[in-house]
């Protein structure tokens, strides 16, 4: 294994013939996409809730509560979620992993969406109201289009957080269900092998791709900021 003879795609081929591994890859992608989707929805609602809070104190308190999951160490999040799921009777597996990924991605989405909301001029909402829009129209036709760059950025952040997470997943995953990080960990504990190398290379490429997409979204965000108050 350590004497290099030449290049080959053998380990990639082996990787794609390993059904167990393919199922794990599929699991990881499904969990990442679903958790990003749900956390984006709830995170957006959370940002709106914080934005709508009347008192400054309430706002600050909500923000601090929001940030608890961002600053607390993964081990504590994992351990406390393990207790939570056990007490609530959620079977450890797909749903517990999905729920915890949604839970720890929500605050990140909130932090991505909130600055966009703060940037929005309140007169936009007043204007829409004056023109006869009801609150549903205001939300879907004025607010959401305006904050959509923040929502997309939040979605991609949630996606990368979910793909990247090891510690929390490791605690709540139980037997029988596994994501890529957990699988790599258990394989790596046995030493290095060439199919993890191939797998790592693939995972690295996917991450890089996500980063590039995220970068372009933020680039567009910066250009689009101030759109609401277009000067003519």
């Amino acid at each position: 294994m350590f004497d290099f003879k030449g290049f080959s795609m053998q380990w990639y081929r082996e990787l794609f013939h390993d059904t167990r591994m393919l199922i794990i890859v599929l699991n990881t992608i499904i969990v990442a996409l679903l958790s990003a989707l749900f956390s984006t929805i709830f995170g957006m609602l959370g940002a709106l809730a914080i934005y709508n809070a009347k008192k400054r104190q309430t706002k600050n308190m909500l923000l601090s509560l929001n940030n608890v999951l961002i600053v607390s160490p993964d081990v504590i999040i994992g351990a406390s979620f393990l207790i939570l799921f056990t007490i609530a009777g959620v079977k450890l597996g797909f749903y517990s992993v999905l729920l915890s990924h949604i839970a720890f991605s929500i605050p990140i989405v909130v932090l991505m969406v909130l600055p966009k909301l703060m940037e929005m001029s309140p007169s936009l909402i007043d204007a829409a109201r004056d023109l006869g829009a009801n609150s549903w129209d205001v939300l879907t036709k004025v607010i959401i289009p305006f904050i959509s760059p923040g929502i997309f950025a939040g979605f991609f952040m949630a996606l990368t957080y979910s793909l990247d997470d090891f510690s929390v997943t490791f605690f709540v995953t139980g037997n029988g269900f596994s994501t890529l990080s957990v699988e790599i960990y258990s394989l790596a504990r046995r030493g290095i092998s060439l199919n993890i190398n191939a797998l790592s290379a693939l995972l690295f490429l996917v991450t890089l791709l996500l980063v590039v997409i995220y970068h372009f979204i933020t680039l567009r965000n910066n250009k689009a900021s101030g759109l609401g108050v277009q000067k003519r």
């Binding site: 709830f42 609602l45 959370g46 709106l48 809730a49 709508n52 909500l62 509560l65 929001n66 608890v68 999951l69 504590i76 999040i77 351990a79 406390s80 979620f81 207790i83 939570l84 007490i87 839970a103 720890f104 929500i106």
Partner: peptide
């Protein structure tokens, strides 16, 4: 209504886990 879902998240996944620990 939409604030409620967020508050629910705060209670279940932020406050409750710390209390449980």
């Amino acid at each position: 209504l939409y604030s409620f879902s967020y508050f629910l998240w705060i209670v279940i996944f932020v406050i409750l886990p710390i209390l449980l620990i």
